[in-house]
Computed example of a mutant assay.
Amino acid sequence: MRRWSAQAKARLIEATLKPGANVSAIAREAGVATSQFGTVRNSVREAGFVIG
């Protein structure tokens, strides 16, 4: 099981929130299931968190 640091998670989520970002490609490059990545991304957006 892979463990991600908080900084690594934030960088990945931040990359997906950029206009025109391809979530599938970012998830694939990170070795994460697209559905799992999308769920986390949506939760972050709905909570109103600002990363960066």
Rank of each mutant, 00 (worst) to 15 (best):
M1D: 07
M1F: 10
M1T: 12
M1N: 09
M1Y: 09
R2I: 14
R2Q: 12
R2L: 14
R3K: 14
R3W: 14
W4Y: 13
S5E: 02
A6R: 05
A6Q: 04
A6K: 06
Q7C: 00
Q7T: 05
Q7E: 06
A8W: 00
A8D: 00
K9N: 01
K9Y: 02
K9F: 02
A10R: 15
A10E: 02
A10K: 14
R11T: 08
R11Y: 01
L12E: 03
L12W: 06
L12C: 08
L12A: 12
I13H: 00
I13G: 00
I13S: 00
I13A: 02
E14F: 11
E14M: 10
T16W: 15
T16S: 15
T16L: 14
T16K: 07
L17M: 15
L17Q: 11
L17V: 05
K18G: 06
K18Q: 15
K18I: 10
K18W: 11
P19R: 12
P19L: 08
A21M: 12
A21K: 07
A21W: 13
N22A: 03
N22Y: 02
V23M: 11
V23S: 06
V23C: 06
S24N: 06
S24A: 13
S24R: 08
A25E: 10
A25H: 06
A25W: 04
I26A: 02
I26T: 03
I26Q: 02
A27K: 03
A27P: 03
R28H: 11
R28V: 12
A30L: 09
A30P: 03
A30W: 04
G31N: 10
G31M: 12
G31H: 08
V32I: 15
V32C: 08
V32H: 03
V32T: 07
V32G: 04
A33W: 04
A33P: 03
A33K: 08
T34K: 15
T34N: 12
T34V: 15
T34Y: 15
S35K: 13
Q36Y: 14
Q36E: 14
F37M: 15
T39N: 14
T39E: 13
T39G: 11
V40K: 04
V40I: 11
R41N: 02
R41K: 09
R41D: 01
R41P: 00
R41Y: 06
N42T: 14
N42A: 13
S43I: 05
S43C: 03
V44F: 13
V44E: 01
V44T: 05
R45N: 09
R45Q: 15
E46R: 09
E46I: 06
A47G: 03
A47V: 04
A47Y: 06
A47W: 06
G48P: 02
F49P: 00
V50P: 00
V50N: 04
I51V: 11
I51Q: 03
G52Y: 04
G52C: 02
G52K: 10
